[in-house]
Design a protein around this nucleic acid. Structure first.
Lengths: 199, 199, 199, 199
DNA sequence: GATGAATGAGTATTCATTCAT
DNA sequence: CATGAATGAATACTCATTCAT
């Protein structure tokens, strides 16, 4: 009884957030109550309040974690190498299944909806996209100087690339048939090449 | 008791759905209770149940209305005219402020989130995107035959166009600065031209 | 549309009461709402109020009907004949499957519960048992004079007979095994004979 | 906020069930809402749900308590003594005012009605009557061996005894006049003697 | 650090009923 | 005669949270 579960608060927080994520996934954000999350995490509901202070703060903690996970995907792109091969790697990363599956759309759409009314959350998402754009601009600058791509307005092209990528990932859930993900990605990569002046 | 208004249910339903939409906009889907909608519509909460039977059915009624509104935007594109000028009209429509403002993102993101768990809703969204793609393919076929665009794989190009457009509309809320909507649209239209082989 | 359902209110009342009975049977008295009864009867809820004035009055109408059905069972016993054979007929009637099945226990128990708080209903049930006792006393008087039974205190014996019969009918639902109804009745008839001094 | 009492759930449950019983008694099962029970118990409505989880579970808890109270009455019969005197004690117990008053008929009839649709409850009642019969058979076996009663078919006689007793108790509420309970019981005991072959 | 008791506002929905048509 | 609109009180239950232990 005494030395049973010796876990500190900080150790348990991630497990609770994982449970929270699962509940949203399974039942939707609007049905993800503190009680349900606690039940799934196997702890007492009061404990969640005890840890996070408020449900809203718990939501924000989850948002941070999810956004960070998303951002970390860029770190996977190895540096260096031949420019043309490097471009391929970048495009392949953008339309990789791994990335596509890294996010749960039920959760993400809920957060995007939430961000419309919640300034702090809006700022976080905005910031993530800022980092996204900066990263792409850096890469494009490198590739441009190496002659691997030919863009006249890098900023405009980066915006287009992000839009194409985001739109594709979010809406291929609706407008492509099951099992055609690979083909869809190939099409998108080809479109991306046109945007980058290498079609 | 005094001023009991005599209106048919069908007459009042649109007003109630409008109130529902406003509440979601103002407080989020998860806080849009029957009571709040009724209060905003100026009717008794029981009446909403009396009309729609269930909150879920009311949600679906709203979804139908919103999706239809969205779909109707295509009808605005005038037929005929010079192919090159027609292409311009199509692209301008896709990135028009009118279209962008036709939807409320708080509502739409909520519905997208909901569609991940609600088969019937998923089907409706899917169907909408199907009509979207069919329309674009028809237009592209016309333009292609008239020599206004040059695409090798029309289906792939249509997918790219939709992805670019959707991604742009949804995420320009985050990754562009306020007041740069026009510039963003010009960039996107240019990217679209590249995709359509007229860059 | 005009000559579709030409039924007067009095013609429809029995159908509504039958629907009411069915709803109680299926879902219990506490769940038998006006709306459910109306749905089963295929009419508009307001109509029930229109006909009966109040739900309570509708309950009372059903009570009257049920009690009367119950009382009518005695009318089935043919008059005349040999006293000993007549006694057999009486006992067989008391423990006949027909009688046992004439009442629905879900409904009856509900009414008995209701009668504890509802004076008018209590009086109706009391009255029914009064008629029951009077009938038995008449029969016992006849049989006694004909030497078919031998009872010292007819009133006491009638009470015992009713108690035995009621107790048996209501509680054989619990304390006998399925399919042993016939044997149970034979046992009860034998006990009744002992009570009537003809064992 | 001020006088928040610190009691364990298990301590309070009996008091709540007592309040529940009283409400059914006073207003009928169909009107015994959680809110009314809470009001009578002097606690917050949510607390009842907190304790029992569901209204249905609360009903079942009450059923268990009531049935157990009923069953405990047999324990009151002292063992041993002269067989003939023991028989008298048994019959007197069966028709004692104490036993008759131990149950509230409004509650019991409601439970019997409920048991027709609720399997688990049906089983509980059935089980109670099983214990009842077993007890009577044991007693009858003792008395029979001691020559105090003379029955050819003990099971049949036990069934008759239970039926007579139950029918008498439940329906003497209707078919005897006020103030004649004692006389009624004497009549029933005499009938019981006939059934047991000691008339 | 963790839990159970307790709360009060809020949830969607059902209720019997009234009224105008 | 019959119905749809409308109501307001009530339903069981959930909510995030607080507090004492």
């Amino acid at each position: 009884m005494t030395g049973r579960k010796r876990q500190s608060a900080e150790e348990r927080k991630p497990a609770i957030l994982r449970a929270f994520h699962q509940v949203i996934e399974a039942e939707g954000f609007e049905n993800a109550s503190v009680a349900k999350v606690a039940r799934r995490a196997g702890v007492h509901p009061s404990l969640l309040i005890h840890y996070f202070g408020t449900k809203e703060k718990m939501v924000m903690a989850l948002v941070d974690e999810v956004l960070e996970t998303y951002a970390l995907l860029f770190a996977k792109l190895p540096e260096g190498g031949d420019p043309h091969e490097r471009l391929e790697r970048l495009l392949t990363l953008l339309w990789s299944l791994e990335w596509h599956e890294a996010v749960n759309f039920s959760v993400v759409f809920s957060f995007l909806a939430l961000s419309q009314r919640h300034d702090s959350l809006m700022e976080r998402v905005r910031n993530l996209y800022g980092r996204y754009r900066v990263y792409l601009l850096e890469q494009m600058d490198l590739l441009s100087k190496a002659g691997a791509i030919h863009v006249s307005d890098p900023t405009a092209s980066a915006e287009a690339l992000i839009s194409l990528c985001e739109g594709s990932h979010y809406f291929c859930r609706y407008h492509i048939e099951a099992g055609t993900f690979d083909a869809h990605c190939r099409h998108m990569i080809q479109a991306a090449r046109l945007i980058l002046g290498v079609g």
